[in-house]
Design a binder for these strands. Structure first.
Lengths: 343, 343
DNA sequence: TTGTACGCGTTATCAT
DNA sequence: ATGATAACGCGTACAA
């Protein structure tokens, strides 16, 4: 694999390597003719600069890394599209990095900072409660976007965050169902051992019940299965199916994500439970798929565009020197559709 | 940013850099005690090896790159999960690279081969008809997985491919609708200027009509909008809405992807068209979301697991020396659900 | 405007 | 088992 490198090109053109480098990187100090000759030679010989070598040598690349856990959360996928536009608009490029479920996103970030010469990091989703010391090692600015619980022992001026107030919105959604006359409200939430958004929304749910004089019934709360992909339709489906087997009566089902809710709907349908006649179902996120469902899904819509813009605004504010670490709470929007009925 | 490097660690441990390197990379020729001492020192000082330097120097990394166009095609997302498992099972790691719609995946692949020291490439989706010469420059084995049209001027023993016979399956689906008594069958397909799977399925559609003595009506064929994300629900929605405005009568709608079909369903519902009473709808791919819909979507299911396994089997067969380039055609499976009725 | 020489952090080779 | 040193391919002072 004798791949052509910058020295070969230099030799072929009868110039120095630095001249070739200047041609590649659009440096000003180069004769237009020389440049064209070099670029032509590059094209003819299929020369492709080696990014590893570039990263190794370069001081700073105009790159923002976006780390996302999993790929099945369509809400996060939607955010990526907008983040990319915004990052491009600032003259940077986006490096999307997928983090496995059993991987630590902070470790990945640490590696990435060394490998590419990142200027900033955006964490999409995830949970950062126990990652304090590691997080502090990151010497580039970062934003926790749509993250659930946040690190508590790290001072809030060392990082930024953008999210909705998951507990409050969970509260609002529950209260909405209560106002519709529901008392036996079931919930599908996140596993107990992690401190994700699901847990916070569950806390809001409990508080709303309490404030409205409804006793909390642990029988009504179910958790995502750890052996199935987090926040997937499949997970919502299997959990609901198991739930129905227990014959616990309920009139409404609050799922911590739309995808879970859609899976739940399927399980309900299969069991002959009509939505919303027999059971009302609500989700959280406001993903497109919910709009297309039958019945269309009532949900707590997260302001995707606003959150993505806030994320990049804060990050570039810090990178460009004006602006400092900020914690932005966006307001979610309760979208009433067809999956809920009044009792 | 004075980041600690391998030399610092060597100095601190009173050993040579090569010994540290051996400790990191699990080389056999190293004293267990020395190794532990070094690893401890590494952990204490938060040393993280620089991947750019490693990639630059390393001869071969056990890495397979998977290139995917976009992220909204849930069928491809499903494939990724299985591909990753399979790749890991072979002791390799997967580098997932997202390709933008206006980017050339072959260009990206070429860069990647230089940057990391890939052993193989998997192209997910995409269209390779006009990329022949570039494709040939790739000096690592690659598999075109679920790609639509394939390069014709490159000899078939220079690359591998895994896909369904899109034309035949398009034919079968159309014939299925015809057998159900449909004659005015509309179609939402891929843009005319690209040679993707959509185009092939369209060809099958035309052939089926012809073979069954039904005149092809160009009025009934619509294409995805170029200004909206390819194969997205949104695209299916807007195209169908526009289509309905033209008041062209039809009794069935064949969409080249499930996502398009789900978007189409929404548009039909909004227009007061009942599914399947007024119009039957079918999709293609067999994504999970289709199962959950109301009505659940009749579709041509692609054998995701089989295709992913075939892809990695072929690739590793070539990498490991036994086995050569292969072209595997998998059989799709027509899944009848609730979105079609007999006339 | 252009070329030379050095260093980025690592792994591979070779010697010990 | 270990260490010294030469690459890997590129960007960039600095000199010309």
């Amino acid at each position: 694999m004798n791949t052509v490198n910058i020295r070969d090109i230099a030799r072929m053109c009868g110039v120095g390597v630095s001249t070739v480098s200047r041609a590649i990187n659009n440096h000003p100090d180069i004769n237009q003719e020389t440049k064209e000759k070099i670029l032509k030679c590059i094209a003819e010989n299929n020369y492709i600069p080696n990014n590893s070598a570039r990263n190794l040598k370069r001081q700073e690349a105009k790159v923002i890394a976006v780390l996302i856990k999993g790929l099945t959360n369509t809400f996060l996928i939607e955010m990526i599209q907008i983040l990319e536009e915004e990052i491009k608009r600032h003259g940077y490029s986006m490096a999307l990095e997928r983090v496995h479920f059993d991987q630590d996103e902070v470790d990945i970030a640490l590696e990435l900072v060394k490998e590419k010469r990142l200027r900033g990091i955006i964490f999409l989703g995830g949970d950062f409660e126990n990652r304090v010391s590691k997080l502090r090692e990151l010497d580039v600015p970062f934003v926790l976007s749509t993250a659930g619980s946040q690190p508590e022992d790290i001072s809030s001026d060392e990082y930024s965050s953008v999210s909705v107030d998951d507990m409050r919105e969970g509260y609002k959604m529950t209260e909405f169902l209560i106002k519709k006359g529901h008392k036996r409200i079931a919930m599908i939430s996140a596993k107990t051992d992690d401190e994700s958004v699901g847990k916070l929304r569950l806390r809001g749910y409990k508080k709303a019940l309490e404030d409205n004089g409804i006793a909390f019934d642990p029988e009504l709360v179910r958790f995502m299965r750890p052996d199935v992909e987090d926040y997937s339709m499949e997970n919502g489906y299997v959990v609901t199916r198991d739930f129905l087997k227990d014959k616990v009566p309920f009139t409404a089902l609050f799922c911590v994500s739309d995808t879970l809710a859609l899976g739940a709907c399927r399980a309900l349908n299969e069991a002959g439970v009509r939505i919303p006649e027999d059971v009302s179902v609500v989700g959280f996120d406001g993903v497109e798929a919910g709009k297309f469902y039958c019945p269309s899904l009532t949900t707590m819509e997260q302001p995707v565009t606003e959150m993505a813009r806030a994320t990049t605004d804060i990050l570039f504010g810090i990178i460009d020197g004006h602006g400092s670490h900020t914690h932005k709470i966006c307001k979610a929007n309760l979208v009433e559709r067809e999956s809920v009925r009044s009792l």
